[in-house]
Nucleic acid binder design. Sequence first.
DNA 1: CTTGATCCTCTAGTGGCTAGAGGATGCAGA
DNA 2: TCTGCATCCTCTAGCCACTAGAGGATCAAG
Lengths: 151, 151
Amino acid sequence: MASTSLSTRSIGRLAALTGVKVPTIRFYEQIGIMPAPERTASDRRVYDDAALRRLSFVRHARDLGFDLDSIRSLLDLADEPERPCGEANAIADRHLAVVTGKIARLKALQAELSRMTAECAGGRVSACKVIEVLHDHDRCGADHGGTRSDF
Amino acid sequence: MASTSLSTRSIGRLAALTGVKVPTIRFYEQIGIMPAPERTASDRRVYDDAALRRLSFVRHARDLGFDLDSIRSLLDLADEPERPCGEANAIADRHLAVVTGKIARLKALQAELSRMTAECAGGRVSACKVIEVLHDHDRCGADHGGTRSDF
DNA sequence: CTTGATCCTCTAGTGGCTAGAGGATGCAGA
DNA sequence: TCTGCATCCTCTAGCCACTAGAGGATCAAG
């Protein structure tokens, strides 16, 4: 195991170290993702190394697109090394499926959008393929039937 | 020109025809995407064919991932067929670039996530690749440096 | 001592809806 | 005619993950 340094830092320093913005750190504290840290006499937050590790974890998970609820579960798991890791895998798998689905939908959109813009000759709106496709969905390739959900 | 039928319908019927939910139609009216329609004596909304066409347009544009601000611009353009369509094309092109960027980022995430889950042997959390990668970003393939933005 | 960076709390806004309260109206069957 | 349910109305609040700004205290450098 590496030596555990015992330094502390302000919220701004923590923000710089992790790439998480200062208001976001306070927000994470408010919603319980980060624990309330110690304070100086003048009420400033002081973060220890555990906080630094935890926030880095959160940041990396957010970078990978996990929502804060999943991150809460992953943090709980990370705190108990003896538990089996099936749950962590399940969370990651679920997220992977979501990501894969999004890619598929976005690719369909990409195809449709490039068809739209490629076919437009650049005349007047009355002859514009972009507007036309939007007006008359039958002229659109794919069937984006039900779920708009998110992108 | 095709014959313009002169039928009308309730908000529920309009919702069924377009696939846009009733509260969403009211919301679109509130924010000015849809104009305030005529009302019956008992204050119920009555939609004509122009409203039906406009809402279908909005729905298709949303399906393609355009945000409501872009849709506002596209609606303005669609209402003036004599204007040149360059602006419509520009909006679509900008959106296409956004979509293409999202696909690229999501593919990187997909690769990282599947690597994470594939390498996990299914033991305890202490040996879990998923948790490990999240803890130590250096073991992660890609560099998701700055922008988390949206997914 | 002054200046400017950083910190504090608090509220409100973003996008694009969705959910629910609390009530009025409309329409079909018994 | 009554009953009951579907649909409609307005209004407010909530969702996610932040972000922005007001209004003020404190700190560190020159």
